[in-house]
């Protein structure tokens, strides 16, 4: 196989990590919303936790994206 092609395939595979990040972020915001609709008065107090959860989930996906970028350009 052409090494260049293998590189691109590898980068694409590394991007699969973003699937998990997407699911995670969706979960966090979805659960936050359903919780907030049940008890709107408690929602603002959890906004910081929402953002922390979002950042943690997103970072996990970005690690994969980072690998992809390193494969592509590194």
């Amino acid at each position: 196989m052409d090494p260049q092609a293998a590189k691109f395939i590898g980068a694409g595979l590394a991007c699969f990590a973003l699937i998990g990040a997407g699911i995670g972020i969706g979960n966090i915001f979805g659960n936050y919303l359903s919780g907030a609709l049940r008890n709107p008065s408690a929602a603002p107090g959890q906004f910081t936790n929402l953002l922390i959860g979002f950042a943690l989930a997103e970072a996990t996906g970005l690690f994969g994206l980072l690998i992809a970028l390193i494969i592509l350009f590194g």
């Binding site: 970072a59 970005l62 980072l66």
Partner: peptide, 16 residues
């Protein structure tokens, strides 16, 4: 590592 890579990867990925 996670603290630095989170910030770095976010900024780099976004700008890329």
């Amino acid at each position: 590592v996670s603290l630095s890579v989170r910030l770095f990867a976010n900024m780099m990925a976004g700008h890329t």
